[in-house]
């Protein structure tokens, strides 16, 4: 099971098994079954299982791009949060997403995010969303996140 289980802010910090831990602290993330597999030292791995309620194209059964957006936003925010010491809230300033290909109907979407630079006020993060192979991405993201007290304004 999990190695560490300190809960700081809204995100659980630590490493989890392959099943991951349901993001129960964030109601919307829990609602779409979002799981956190890793959130440690600026790297976060999260996933969303396929769910027919989240389909954007009824013809093909492909998940709506918005689901991938929500996953990438949460993954980048988690990565930034995992690098903060002491832990505190983060808020998205902006997020840019490139959609490379549609998600495959029926398959879980995973996102791996990295906070590659942390300044006094801002965390910079990038992420990729994929099924099994990060080298074959569904989408990629880059974003800036404000942290500390100002994040809750």
């Amino acid at each position: 099971m999990s190695e560490t289980r300190e809960t700081a802010g809204l995100f659980p910090v630590g490493k989890y098994d392959a099943e991951g831990k349901l993001l129960s602290g964030l109601p919307h993330s829990a609602e779409i079954g979002m799981r956190i597999h890793l959130s440690h030292d600026g790297v976060a791995v999260l996933s969303v299982p396929y769910d027919a309620r989240l389909v954007g194209d009824p013809e093909s059964g492909v998940l709506h791009g918005g689901v991938v957006t929500a996953l990438l936003d949460t993954a980048c925010g988690s990565a930034v949060m995992s690098k903060l010491s002491p832990k505190g809230p983060v808020a998205t300033l902006d997020l840019r997403i490139d959609y490379m290909r549609p998600a495959t109907p029926g398959a879980t979407v995973t996102a791996r995010a990295e906070c590659y630079r942390l300044t006094r006020n801002i965390g910079f993060a990038r992420a990729v969303a994929y099924h099994d192979d990060p080298e074959s991405p569904i989408a990629s993201a880059a974003g800036a996140f404000i942290h500390g007290q100002r994040a809750s304004e």
Binding site: P27, H28, A70, D73, T74, G77, A91, L95
Partner: peptide, 27 residues
């Protein structure tokens, strides 16, 4: 709806929901 909340302490909408909503409006 409460299901759309990202931060229950504030409370605030999940940033991903806001993003998804904008995307829906565009499409």
């Amino acid at each position: 709806s409460e299901r759309l909340v990202g931060n229950p302490i504030l409370p605030a909408l999940h940033g991903g929901v806001t993003g998804a909503f904008l995307e829906i409006a565009a499409i």
